[in-house]
Design a protein around this nucleic acid. Structure first.
Length: 288
DNA sequence: GCAAGCCTGACC
DNA sequence: GGTCAGGCTTGC
């Protein structure tokens, strides 16, 4: 699933493989993945040059300018669950679920948005509209300071796992890295943010940073669908400690990894390395 | 039936 | 305001 490390990897790939190119053609094959009309989308992208690639949390924003300068436009990409945004040779076979093709002026390549589950969205917008989108997000998880992190936890109820995945509070974590960061910090996913000690919260802050930095270095995690901008998978899968390892031995203590459901999301943890806090009711529900 | 990001809407 | 269930979507 594209979370911060995957989106960052794609951003780097786009800077390498598409920056400076001009969009000379737009083909919308499935308009359901667009926000706004397909006609406007196509006409606004046509003849724009890719001048910068930005990222905040899981949101990717490609800055575009026409050759005579003028007002910038932004192609905003949210990859959802199975989205892929790749630079491929123009004549490569078009795979199923390819929803948008953007021809690059160089002639050799094109940008393709492919998304099996169609949770992803593309949008072309103004700087003001982009800023409104980014304002909805909390600080980027890699840029957030420890003070901001601790402050955002203050008084919060509910599960720390849900808190970590709330994009309005901190931007970038999804299910994989939330589970991995909680394991690295030795914190139970159902612990309440407001009851976590300062010491444990500080440990969690450092764990989030460490897990994300490491995943970025390895190009992200490919479970089933994720590919970077060059169409290649990430290597962090082999480093996962808990995510999708239900029943397997904890790599630290050999205890079996457990799975529970929190706010409708599966959650994986080690019951020994992440002991249950006193205030959390005993676990029930699915075990596999 | 399960995976999961994100949006909507219900509830306290 | 915060918190969370439900729905969207398709392949395994």
């Amino acid at each position: 699933m594209p979370e911060l490390p995957e989106v960052e990897t794609i951003a780097r790939g786009l800077r390498k493989g598409a920056l400076g190119e001009c969009l000379t053609g737009v083909e919308v094959r499935h308009r359901g993945v667009l926000i706004g009309s397909a006609e406007e989308f196509a006409s606004q992208l046509q003849n724009q040059r890719l001048v910068a690639v930005r990222r905040k949390g899981k949101v990717l924003a490609v800055e575009l300018r026409t050759s005579n300068g003028g007002v910038p436009r932004y192609l905003v990409v949210r990859l959802g669950m199975t989205g892929q945004f790749t630079v491929v040779p123009r004549h490569a076979p078009v795979e199923p679920h390819t929803h948008v093709r953007l021809l690059l002026g160089g002639g050799k390549n094109e940008l393709r948005f492919r998304d099996i589950r169609r949770f992803g969205r593309l949008r072309c917008c103004t700087r003001e509209e982009l800023e409104a989108v980014l304002r909805e997000l909390g600080p980027d998880a890699q840029e957030m300071t420890e003070e901001q992190f601790l402050g955002a936890m203050r008084g919060r109820r509910g599960a720390i796992k849900s808190w970590l995945m709330n994009q309005r509070l901190l931007a970038g974590l999804g299910n994989i890295y939330a589970d991995e960061a909680l394991f690295a910090a030795g914190i139970h996913p159902l612990a309440q943010p407001r009851r976590i000690s300062r010491q444990a919260a500080s440990r969690l802050f450092k764990a989030v940073r460490k897990v994300l930095d490491r995943a970025v270095r390895l190009g992200g995690t490919t479970f089933s669908d994720y590919l970077n901008a060059e169409g290649r998978p990430g290597a962090f899968l082999a480093k996962l400690r808990v995510y999708q390892r239900t029943g397997e031995a904890c790599r630290r203590c050999r205890q079996a990894i457990r799975r529970i459901v929190i706010a409708g999301r599966s959650c994986h943890f080690c019951p020994r390395c992440q002991p249950r806090p006193r205030n959390v009711a005993s676990m029930r529900g699915p075990r596999n």
